[in-house]
């Protein structure tokens, strides 16, 4: 059983810091990795760090009397981001499957015809 008091006692800045760390992990993953699936997962981590940042601020506003509506606005945003992330996954995976069919590999370095 989870202790509700414990959950609330986590300061929102910690959640925000976690979202910042996730964003950094995502950015590094996109920039450093060469496997398309890993890049794609890093992109999803980046999007979800945004979700977590919204959740953190919503948590902060929910604790302030009179700002409950603002908190709800932020929480509503989260659902839309999750839906968008799913749609993005569909398009991205379709592209990777097409790449694999054409080249037999999902190493993004193989996609290098377009230069200067």
């Amino acid at each position: 059983m989870m202790n509700a008091d414990l959950l609330i006692s986590v300061p929102y800045t910690w959640v925000l810091a976690l979202s910042g760390v996730l964003l950094a992990i995502g950015i590094l993953g996109v920039l450093l990795r060469r496997n398309a699936i890993t890049i794609f997962l890093s992109l999803e981590i980046m999007l979800n760090s945004g979700t977590l940042a919204f959740a953190a601020f919503a948590m902060h506003f929910a604790a302030i009397p009179g700002m409950e509506a603002t908190a709800l606005n932020g929480q509503m945003f989260i659902f839309f981001i999750i839906a968008i992330a799913a749609a993005e996954a569909a398009v991205g995976l379709a592209l990777f499957i097409a790449l694999h069919r054409l080249k037999g590999s999902i190493d993004v370095d193989r996609a290098n015809i377009l230069r200067w």
């Binding site: 925000l16 979202s19 964003l23 995502g26 996109v30 398309a36 890049i39 992109l43 980046m46 999007l47 760090s49 945004g50 979700t51 940042a53 919204f54 953190a56 601020f57 902060h60 606005n73 932020g74 945003f77 981001i81 968008i84 993005e88 398009v91 991205g92 592209l95 990777f96 097409a98 790449l99 054409l102 993004v108 996609a111 290098n112 015809i113 377009l114």
Partner: peptide
Amino acid sequence: SLEAGLKYFVVGAFASAFVVYGLALLYG
């Protein structure tokens, strides 16, 4: 064409993630 799509997807999704995170911070 496939390569262009792949590049556009990675760069576009990267940019969208920044927009979302930025909007979250503006909201905060």
